[in-house]
């Protein structure tokens, strides 16, 4: 009798505690951001997650400055979004984000069209396949230039505009590989860990200003990033590398438009970080449980899954 009573008491306490925690979280959670009539700059907007973000923002009535190096797909997207019911202001900017002077000109062009900027999505990024020993210094630098240096450069350029607003957001597309660092992705993990560290520290620096910071860790999203990723020149004729790439592509499953909706919803709620997809959530938890042992577990699961498929 007393044992079951104790158990019931414990259960009740647990429920009460979780209820209190939830209530506290609700009370501390800031009001969601109203996106209608705001202006967002999105880099890498012409395809993949960037296009998903653009479509999700347009649905919320947000004006857009779309930035990409590929003019054709960029104009196609702008045409699609201009056709919507909200008469949104959509501008396009064909820019290589590693060109610092072009970034300044782009910022000025954005201001000339939109007058203000409320959200910056640092989303443009590239991948590169190959073991560290076979990736050249030039290839490694090329990736860091796009995935990190350009992100820092654009953040510096747009931060004064964001701070001048009354309610702004700075969003960084990191990666699942900004949380875990599997073999064959050293350059990519270097850049995506750096973006995560930069975003997290910047959030602290911007506490008390109108700028909230969200860092995004997408798992496997069905985008062209892996297919477009150059293989390290030293690996071009390696059949193992081609097999690994094919295996990687199988894990890119989530619809990028769904990823865009998840990201925009998280930004609206001022979430500090968002893990996009079950794979990102599970592997992030695994890394936290076992910061050194996670690759061994991943490999065991992966090998078991491949064995089941072939048998």
């Amino acid at each position: 009798m007393s044992a079951s009573r104790k158990l019931a008491g414990l259960g009740l306490a647990t429920v009460a505690l979780s209820g209190a925690t939830l209530a506290l979280r609700r009370a501390l959670a800031p009001l969601p951001m109203a996106l209608a009539g705001r202006t967002a700059v999105i880099t890498g907007a012409a395809s993949g997650i960037g296009r998903g973000i653009a479509r999700a923002l347009a649905r919320q009535g947000c004006n857009l400055a779309l930035v990409d190096r590929n003019a054709g797909p960029l104009e196609a997207l702008a045409g699609e979004l201009r056709g919507g019911p909200d008469r949104l202001r959509i501008s396009t900017h064909v820019v290589d984000v590693t060109d610092a002077a072009a970034n300044v000109a782009m910022r000025d062009a954005v201001v000339a069209v939109h007058h203000e900027v409320d959200l910056l999505f640092n989303n443009a990024g590239v991948a590169l396949g190959g073991d560290f020993a076979r990736v050249s210094a030039a290839e490694f630098d090329w990736l860091l230039g796009i995935n990190l240096d350009a992100v820092v450069d654009l953040t510096r350029l747009f931060l004064p505009l964001l701070r001048a607003g009354d309610d702004s957001a700075l969003v960084f597309t990191s990666s699942l590989f900004g949380l875990i660092a599997p073999p064959g992705q050293v350059a990519y993990s270097t850049s995506k860990f750096a973006v995560r560290g930069f975003a997290t520290a910047l959030r602290g620096e911007l506490a008390g200003t109108p700028v909230s910071v969200t860092v995004v860790h997408p798992g496997g999203v069905k985008t062209a990033i892996a297919r477009d990723a150059p293989l390290a020149a030293a690996l071009k004729d390696d059949p193992r590398a081609a097999r690994e790439r094919a295996a990687t592509e199988k894990f890119l499953r989530m619809d990028p438009d769904l990823a865009g909706r998840i990201i925009v919803d998280a930004v609206r709620k001022r979430r500090h970080r968002v893990l996009v997809g079950l794979d990102a959530k599970l592997l992030s938890a695994l890394e936290r449980a076992s910061p050194v042992g996670y690759p061994t577990v991943m490999r065991a699961v992966f090998e078991r899954a491949s064995a089941r498929k072939t048998s």
């Binding site: 020993a133 990190l148 860990f193 930069f198």
Partner: peptide
């Protein structure tokens, strides 16, 4: 280790180092 409260440039560089070291270590 934890970028919260660190300088953003300092954190970016040390997280880059951490990502590099973890990835190369796993290879």
């Amino acid at each position: 280790l934890d970028a919260t409260g660190a300088g953003a440039v300092d954190a970016a560089a040390h997280y880059a180092l951490r990502g590099f070291a973890s990835g190369l270590g796993n290879e």
